Amino acid sequence: MEYRTLGASGLAVSEIAYGNWLTHQETGCVAAALDAGVTTFHTAAAWGGGAAEEAYGKAFSGLRRDDLVLCTGVFWPDGPGPNDAGLSRKHLYTSLASSLRRLRTDHVDVYQLMRFDHRTPLAETFLALSDLVRQGKIRYVGTAEWTATQLLDAHAEAERFNVPLISNQPHYSMLWRVADSQVIPTCDRIGIGQFASIPLAQGVLTGKYHGATVPPGSRAEGLAPVRPVLLPDLLERVGLLRGVADDAGITMAQLALGWALQNPSVSAVVTGARTPDQIRENAKASGTVLDLDTLTRVDELLGSFIQSDPRLVWSPPSP
């Protein structure tokens, strides 16, 4: 495993980060990730109704806390009340308190604002974050799926309130390059690194989907957002990437993860796994170097299926 610093900070993160959005039923994946050198783990308060954080809390029991970079997030509803969502001061305090309890820790390393909150003034959010930093409950702050303009505004408030804003987590893969034209250049200028999210396009880039057939137990079987991506023409193009991966001596999953890591602005790719073998395979993508010919072949094969419109950064209305 190789490590990179996150943005302009001195925080070292593993190139492969493990996220448990969909796979928070612990089946030995955390142990396999740790054995492979993964030190960076992502979760969020709302995932699985808190079960995702609880799974990590149990899995990390007995480990040296300082060996981990633990990231959790806030924004989505994590309770039934009108103040149980968004980025208000009240929700930040109550949600973080519950997250720390479920994670069995007294602090998180990166507290991620999972979406932009149109309802709450940024000044309110960043003043609250500043207080939480001074209290020692969070070490750094990140965002997820924020636009370039929103990030610039956040950077100004972060500097005003002395908040260490160091990361952004965009959807980013060989197919989804929406962050390339505006978000990533803006982050480069203001010292924010990228946690590349969904780098396998929900498993599509592993080559396991063929036509309209959905493999039993796969993510597409129970996750509706994957199904629109299962277009026959796209899957045919993705299938051709197997030859590219074979020529590079790596698997298709490692090709997809390695592609994202070729971008120096990407500090880590965040990927889940259903089995320990999957996380072991993914971890081997660390340190991958893809030559220009390989990158060119990827672009030529995926062609018009590559999405790069910066307007597609997803910042929904406040919950």
Rank of each mutant, 00 (worst) to 15 (best):
R115P: 06
A85K: 09
G10W: 08
F60L: 14
S99K: 03
Q182A: 15
D35F: 02
Y18I: 00
R189K: 15
A201S: 12
G303R: 02
V238G: 05
P232E: 12
A144C: 15
Q202N: 15
A256D: 07
L68Q: 06
L152T: 15
V266K: 06
P80N: 08
H24K: 05
V38N: 00
T206Q: 06
G49C: 06
L122Y: 00
G86R: 02
L113F: 13
P80E: 06
S318M: 10
V204C: 01
Y56K: 05
A97S: 05
V266H: 03
R64F: 05
S98N: 11
W259T: 12
A52Y: 03
Y209K: 01
W314V: 04
R104V: 09
W259I: 15
S61P: 01
T125C: 05
L68V: 13
H91T: 04
R227M: 02
D299Y: 04
L92F: 03
V178K: 11
H42V: 13
T294D: 07
L301I: 15
V214P: 03
D293M: 06
L87T: 03
R227C: 07
I190W: 08
D293F: 08
A51F: 00
G239A: 00
L234W: 07
A148I: 13
P77G: 06
R102A: 11
L63A: 09
D78I: 06
D233M: 03
D106Q: 05
V141M: 07
E2D: 14
W314Y: 15
V69N: 04
T43E: 02
P232A: 06
G57N: 02
P77A: 13
N263S: 15
E236C: 04
D277S: 14
G203M: 13
V214K: 02
A12R: 07
F161H: 11
G249H: 10
T125V: 12
G243S: 05
C71R: 02
R134L: 11
S130E: 05
N162K: 08
E54L: 02
A45V: 15
F161C: 00
P317E: 13
F60I: 01
I192C: 04
E2Y: 09
D153H: 07
D117W: 01
W21A: 11
T288K: 08
D35I: 15
K208Q: 07
S308H: 14
G62L: 04
E53G: 08
A51H: 05
L312K: 13
V13E: 04
G50K: 12
R242E: 13
S304Y: 08
P121I: 03
A12M: 06
R139K: 07
G10H: 14
D67P: 09
L234V: 04
D309L: 10
E157W: 00
C29E: 14
W259S: 08
E145F: 13
D131N: 12
G62Y: 11
I16W: 10
A32R: 08
Y3P: 05
R4S: 11
K90L: 13
D180C: 09
F116M: 01
R160L: 14
L122M: 10
G49K: 00
W47G: 00
A33Y: 09
G62H: 01
A273P: 08
